[in-house]
Write a protein that binds this DNA or RNA. Sequence first.
DNA 1: TATGAATGAGCATTCATTCAT
DNA 2: AATGAATGAATGCTCATTCAT
Lengths: 196, 196, 196, 196
Amino acid sequence: MTVTEKRLAKRRRITEEAARLFGERGYQATRMADVAAALGMQAGSLYYYVDSKEALLAAIVEERVSVAVDMLTEILVEDLDPVAKIRRGIEGHLVVFDEHADLYRIFLSERLDAIAPELAETVDRLGRRYEDLWVDLVNEAIAAGALRPDLDPWLTMKAIVGMCNSTLCWFDPAGRLTPEEVADRFADVVLAGIRA
Amino acid sequence: MTVTEKRLAKRRRITEEAARLFGERGYQATRMADVAAALGMQAGSLYYYVDSKEALLAAIVEERVSVAVDMLTEILVEDLDPVAKIRRGIEGHLVVFDEHADLYRIFLSERLDAIAPELAETVDRLGRRYEDLWVDLVNEAIAAGALRPDLDPWLTMKAIVGMCNSTLCWFDPAGRLTPEEVADRFADVVLAGIRA
Amino acid sequence: MTVTEKRLAKRRRITEEAARLFGERGYQATRMADVAAALGMQAGSLYYYVDSKEALLAAIVEERVSVAVDMLTEILVEDLDPVAKIRRGIEGHLVVFDEHADLYRIFLSERLDAIAPELAETVDRLGRRYEDLWVDLVNEAIAAGALRPDLDPWLTMKAIVGMCNSTLCWFDPAGRLTPEEVADRFADVVLAGIRA
Amino acid sequence: MTVTEKRLAKRRRITEEAARLFGERGYQATRMADVAAALGMQAGSLYYYVDSKEALLAAIVEERVSVAVDMLTEILVEDLDPVAKIRRGIEGHLVVFDEHADLYRIFLSERLDAIAPELAETVDRLGRRYEDLWVDLVNEAIAAGALRPDLDPWLTMKAIVGMCNSTLCWFDPAGRLTPEEVADRFADVVLAGIRA
DNA sequence: TATGAATGAGCATTCATTCAT
DNA sequence: AATGAATGAATGCTCATTCAT
């Protein structure tokens, strides 16, 4: 491993640890000293790898900001019927949220625009992109006659995505249900409804 | 208006303004000076009415913490069929969230236990109570044969409540849809599903 | 009682209450609001009678600053033998300190020159006057052959006055000994020594 | 000097400087900025070494709280006749008070229980212990027939200790008398009395 | 590369004081 | 004569950041 590679590896460890702490306790409540302590370093040493606390947040966000979008993009081009794609989309959402819970907690809970407006704009843009993909998915399914034609596609997207997002607040990876299982039940609710 | 009434009225204005700012920008990011400035006062003057920033948060929370629970409790005793109750519950949720958006933003976004553990406990307890009521509602409907018997009541509750909670992030009171309209569509999704 | 008399009476009640609190808790630790509360008033109302907290302290001090000096002056002109005068001086000291404990606690414990330099100067001047009177007393007694001729009059004064001053820290008016009794024992110690 | 030693050395310099200022101007009147300025630092920098202003006071007190007790304890076990021990005790008192004047000024002048109740309790306990040792000394001397049998041991202790304590208010290390000289004269007064 | 040390701006809070009523 | 209300200066403390070593 070259010097530069070692440096990058350490930088990655820092962003990962920071992501974990920011996600757990919140950005404001996490001190640079906390991040450093979690890595067995002094606060000042972080600045050898990172320009500022804000830049650290930016690095975290930018590094993985497009995971969900990429996931959904791939699903969209798969050779599946529209309803199956929706089911896969929900599953992908929950799996990605499970794997990157800290990151999405930052996306959804932190008032990013009060911290770093440009960062908030980046996240917003990606968020809108993600929602647009879902709207496309819904529209495609309606056009294919698979969904009720009277649906408001945007509101339907909000219902699905909102339901999925909220798992961030309660889903426990060590609990009785896997993300895939939750996704399956959620998809049932959304697709077939709960009425007998 | 007596002196005490005036005092209480001012105190109420302060908590309202603070709730607005805490909800908008977050608790940490809002300075006492911001709250004061929004009321045309100096920061120090707030302490004539309020003990501390934390006490101000507590006052905001405690004043209205049970609104949603009360709403749902009332619906549960209404003389309606179970499915109608669910529809009414969703409507109630969105209406209450619209009316008290700042408060519920504080409930759901702030890491209250890092700020005031006892307050967090109060909010958690109420939150669990609210979820319990929803589980009751779902169970009641299943027992009445109105909902599919294979539903996981708790997960169904999480789906419904999560969907409703997420409106906090995007619902615009000045937008094209009223809370009741959104609630109606959301209820359609949940009850009948989106499939054609 | 004329209006002015009533005003003066109230002013006196304020200074007395303030003296009590300043003596008990200390000047810094006593808030104007505490003084007011002890009199059933609002802090702001005090300013109708008193110019400032500092002026209140000055009023307390100036009102009674010369009590001890007056007492000792009177003793000096009494028709007693020098040793009896010393005994009376010690008694007078303890009685005055008992009666005006709060005042002398302020004199001796507060760093007056950090609060009000001119006031400190006044108190210092009176203190020096008081000590001078004691030195006179000692010198008179030595000259009369009543005390050992090798005594350092100033240091002897410091010993006597210091011993008496220290009662401020422990003397309890409700305790087993009266000020006069303590004075008597102290005088025995000073005059005859404790050796068998 | 290792890093830790340097750190401790600096911490010691801080507590010493703070002790000096607290003793001189009083705890309340001394700002953290004053302590810092006296060391050529910024106020914030102190917190790298000290937890809080109160903790700084506690450190000062606890570091040296038992100096006087230790001194007197050693004298008590020395092989001297009781009267010589009393003379040595007075000398020890004045020497210790001279060496740690700032500390004992804090002990005796500050209303510690208004600042830090537990600290006040510690100081009180030590103070009582110190007085107990003096009472023992007096009792021992009476039992040995060296002091008058009619003495009230406790009051005698108060007389001696009070006399010694009061030197804090006037003793000048740069003055004409050393602590030992003052102690010698004070011991003469107490043991033999001032009468011719 | 990392650290110990220091900084300084920022913020909550206190409290003597003012003043219109 | 008194009050409720407001002020603003002061102060302890936090923490991201810098920098010499």
